[in-house]
Write a protein that binds this DNA or RNA. Sequence first.
DNA 1: TCCTTCTCTGTACGATGTACAGAAACTAGA
DNA 2: TCTAGTTTCTGTACATCGTACAGAGAAGGA
Lengths: 229, 229
Amino acid sequence: MTRSRPGPRRALSEQQILDAAHRLLAERGAEGVSIRGIAAQLGVAPNAIYTYFPDKAAVLGALVDSVLGRVGRECFADPAEPWRDRITALAVALRTELLVDAGGVALMGGVPLNGPNALAVGETLLEVLAAAGLEPEAAARASYLLTTYVLGAVSLEVAELEQPGPPPPEGERVAARATAFATVPAAHYPRSAAVAATMATYITTEQFLWGLDRILDGLAQSGTGTRTA
Amino acid sequence: MTRSRPGPRRALSEQQILDAAHRLLAERGAEGVSIRGIAAQLGVAPNAIYTYFPDKAAVLGALVDSVLGRVGRECFADPAEPWRDRITALAVALRTELLVDAGGVALMGGVPLNGPNALAVGETLLEVLAAAGLEPEAAARASYLLTTYVLGAVSLEVAELEQPGPPPPEGERVAARATAFATVPAAHYPRSAAVAATMATYITTEQFLWGLDRILDGLAQSGTGTRTA
DNA sequence: TCCTTCTCTGTACGATGTACAGAAACTAGA
DNA sequence: TCTAGTTTCTGTACATCGTACAGAGAAGGA
């Protein structure tokens, strides 16, 4: 119950700023998210933003965390499902949201995933792993492994679409990668060139799922994990 | 044998520019790598750089690739060794070099890993996987999986050391993470808080190796891979 | 009413990437 | 040897960025 404080009423809110940042991100890509741009969208002087956030890094951090919040809210899968399915659902949702919504930002700014929503997602993950029968230590390590994989996948895909602007749909990305690989000199890199065509198609959700399955295989095999299904 | 061309002799070289960039990276961190900074180090006007590279992204790309070159040169492990050891050596070397040398740059700039040295490393990886008995398709997928993991690990660690400057040694990073985790509110995130102490220590080479082992387990188990050791 | 507190604006500084034009240096051909 | 052509670097300039500083104005508490 915060007492109403003196001074003029706030014309903005943290959420409005994040919404504007999000809009900018969708329209112009990660590079296009600037304090001045956000302020312009809100019809406000650039400095007004600094009333709500201490600096740009804070805005980006909150932006990424708000995206993670959406994932957390949508991914409370049924605890009755097999743990592999629950983890897969969480991982896919994370990748998708980060990729289309905040991928560039998450990495370009070196934004640490410290926010409350990031913690909540981590908590859910630990919960599922514990329910799968992993000891706390193994669960912690597994959670870090899975996080690493998701972030790496996002990071690789983001790094590949160099130009600014909104991220192209998956089909376009695959096509672009195929042509890029077609230029690999076979004389020097015979194996890379040989798998070029197939590799191009692997930069997709399907390859992500394949890798995830291998990781889950490894986790299930690692002793402390459950062995059923 | 390139014929000598007209015009004044070049005062610089691509390598000198990359060396200066590298020096700047080590001293001031990823944010400190600027065209103007590089030019200043070389005692040259900023625009002179544009004679050698079309834009900043090209400089960063070449910088990252040169770091990868060092990895490739140092990591032609003995083909007689077990494939797991060879892959582990390659992955560890990659992570180490990217982390201490070009981690921030590799991600902050969204630099695509397209350069010749990146291709060479990928080629080596495919070679080892083929030697391990994987079919070309499985090898391609496995190579992508491993790359993703390494990049994710680097990306996570880089994101955590927020401040600019040279990356602190691993011990300091672990300590910083321990204190950060100590502030996690146990009421809201019981599991995260419970594993805080141990998780802090996992952001290390050791956790990286643990995850890598799980992945290699999954690969070995996935049918097409070799089953021996 | 006055005083305090808060929010937003105007202005400004330093830094960045890089485009443009021009001067100087060098080679190749006459 | 002279000249024309080519290349390299410099000087200057512009747009953009994050953000620091001071101040105006609105709003509540006394």
